[in-house]
Amino acid sequence: MYPVDLKYTPEHEWVRTPGDTEGSVRVGITHYAQDQLGDIVYVSLPAVGDAVTAGSACGELESTKSVSDVYAPVDGEVVAVNESLDTTPELVNSDPYGGGWLYELTPTDSGAVDGLLDAAAYQETIGE
């Protein structure tokens, strides 16, 4: 349920290296997070070119239950956003590790991703 090739944050984001853009990483939310949120109805993402800071809110996911912040996993610059979520936000629920990705960023420190949680450590944080 939690792919071992990804890195994770305690705030329930995942990071895939590499992203589609050279030097970037792809960011999304975990299966656990989308399950807790319920049906996603609206996604607000940072804009391409935005600088994001690790641990800071950079977007929002609105569900039928609540609104939840999306946090940056590492410092960097946003280089791509998943525009398909504008019309089909439910992809975050149905395919959180594939078509439901959120954005890509180029990390300021290329080693920062290595300091994130692996799948086993993330599962411990959520009690699974």
Rank of each mutant, 00 (worst) to 15 (best):
M1C: 13
P3D: 15
V4Q: 15
V4R: 14
D5L: 15
D5F: 11
K7G: 03
E11F: 12
E11I: 12
H12L: 00
H12Y: 00
H12G: 07
E13D: 06
E13C: 10
W14S: 00
W14P: 00
V15S: 03
V15F: 00
V15Y: 01
R16D: 14
T17A: 09
T17E: 06
D20W: 03
T21I: 11
S24A: 08
V25I: 08
V25T: 02
V27M: 06
V27C: 02
G28Q: 08
T30S: 06
T30K: 04
H31Y: 04
A33S: 15
Q36W: 04
L37F: 14
A47H: 02
A47I: 08
V48K: 06
G49R: 02
G49L: 01
G49W: 07
T53D: 11
T53R: 03
A54F: 11
A54Q: 07
A54K: 03
G55T: 13
G59W: 03
G59A: 01
L61C: 09
S63G: 01
T64V: 13
K65Q: 14
S66L: 11
V67A: 07
S68I: 00
V70P: 11
Y71K: 05
A72C: 09
P73G: 07
D75L: 05
E77H: 07
V79H: 08
A80K: 03
V81W: 01
E83Q: 15
E83K: 12
L85R: 06
D86K: 13
T87L: 12
T87Y: 14
P89T: 04
V92F: 15
D95W: 04
Y97P: 01
Y97W: 03
G98K: 10
G98D: 05
G100H: 02
G100E: 05
G100C: 07
G100D: 10
W101N: 01
L102Q: 02
E104L: 06
T106S: 10
D109P: 06
D109E: 13
S110I: 11
G111N: 10
G111R: 10
V113K: 13
D114Y: 11
G115C: 07
G115K: 11
L116F: 04
L117F: 15
A120P: 05
A121R: 01
Q123L: 04
E124Y: 01
T125N: 13
I126N: 00
